[in-house]
């Protein structure tokens, strides 16, 4: 249990997992030989090296019990910015920039405890004006202002 709270041990596991995953996916790519490398050759090299490092990290952390502990995750700061950007990505091309920006900022501001809700509408209005001027009319990104 304690081991799973140690930074280096978890980092080791993560690298082992990524390396392992690469090996599994990369199996389907032709390996080739050193003189004529197939698409699978270089990724295999990297994956093996990554797993080796992951193993070293994990074993070292396992033997050294005094390793640094992982600080608690703050779900608030992880969740709101992520959700805001995902929403924006899903909405932008369908609903236009005004609604998407309102969603991005309306959701994103909750990431901070210090957000003052009274300020949010002003923030959104300012952002919309700026983005429409710069990105839609300025650099002419192919974005609609309103839903089609």
């Amino acid at each position: 249990m304690h081991l799973l709270r140690q930074k280096d041990f978890v980092a080791g596991l993560v690298f082992l997992a990524i390396g392992g995953g690469t090996l599994v996916i990369g199996r389907s790519y032709r390996l080739g030989t050193a003189s004529e490398m197939g698409p699978g050759y270089f990724p295999m090299l990297l994956a093996v090296a990554l797993m080796a490092l992951g193993l070293v990290l994990a074993v070292k952390a396992w033997r050294d019990t005094a390793g640094e502990e992982i600080e608690p995750l703050h779900l608030r700061v992880l969740f709101f910015p992520t959700l805001a950007i995902v929403l924006f990505g899903l909405m932008l091309e369908r609903l236009g920039i005004v609604i998407s920006l309102a969603a991005l900022l309306g959701v994103g501001v909750f990431a901070s405890r210090e957000t003052r809700l009274k300020e949010v509408p002003f923030l959104i209005v300012a952002a919309v004006i700026f983005c429409v001027a710069v990105f839609v009319y300025g650099v002419e990104l192919p974005i609609e202002v309103w839903p089609k």
């Binding site: 805001a84 924006f88 991005l104 923030l123 952002a127 983005c131 990105f135 974005i143």
Partner: peptide
Amino acid sequence: RLLFPAILMFCAIGAF
């Protein structure tokens, strides 16, 4: 609190 929403916005639109 006013700065980070702006950064979010630039990242999202810039990436697009």
